[in-house]
Amino acid sequence: MIYPDSKIVLEVRGLCATVNGTEILKGLDLTVRRGEVHAIMGPNGSGKSTFSKILAGHSAYEVTGGSVMFEGQNLFDLAPEERARAGVFLAFQYPIEIPGVINSQFLRLTYNTVQTHRGKEELDPLEFDDYVREKMKLLEMSPDFLERSVNEGFSGGEKKRNEILQMAMLDPRLAILDETDSGLDIDALRIVANGVNQLANKDNAIVLVTHYQRLLNYIVPDYVHVMEAGRIIKTGGKELALELESRGYDWVGVEHKAVAGAVA
């Protein structure tokens, strides 16, 4: 929801980045304020996941220009784990499997680590078990997932739920959900979207990366951005997503080039 005079959570200016020498982001601008839900759409390979991972601090990407401020501080001054502790959360498009590491132990370590850095109390295993089971109910997840290795052998949809479970536990300031909807069946989409909606409040912000309108039926965005070739080339309200759904992306690019041409 858009609140007047709300504080800026994320301010991205002219962000450029390369991977293995190839330029992927080419001057990306985005401003996100507390309370808002933003959707980023755009064709495959336009750089949406790259942008998400750069915000989280993945070392494979080199930032070659521009700036990112998070809650008033330079995001690039923080190591990836410090960003997470400060409240940047990324639900991965492809959550990785970690064989041998038990989910409940992983979840407790991440929860307690983040809590400690926020000056809050840690939970012992028993307390944590109660806490996490409560959160799992929100996502209608079976407690069986606690005893399995992190994401190992989870179905695509189960992995996504496990991501949102962590979002629910870690209470982020900025949550970036990279195609959390893909791989979810119809019921799961509703459940996960409900979960996300319950977590959204006036103090945090959510950036949804998605290809489909159906997620946006549940989580209604305040802004919809179109990303192409490493830039945000159009921004609109929630109706933009509907228009994209019916017309595709081509016209946005054409329109953008026309505007750019006129300016030049």
Binding site: A56, P95, V101, L109
Partner: peptide, 28 residues
């Protein structure tokens, strides 16, 4: 892999603790 360590880091866990957890899981 880097990507496993990145996953831990994204959840606030530094590389040292991550390696320790992965190895202990492996050797359980």
């Amino acid at each position: 892999g880097e990507d496993q360590l990145f996953y831990f880091a994204q959840r606030g866990i530094d590389a040292e603790a991550a390696v320790s957890m992965i190895i202990n899981g492996f050797c359980k």
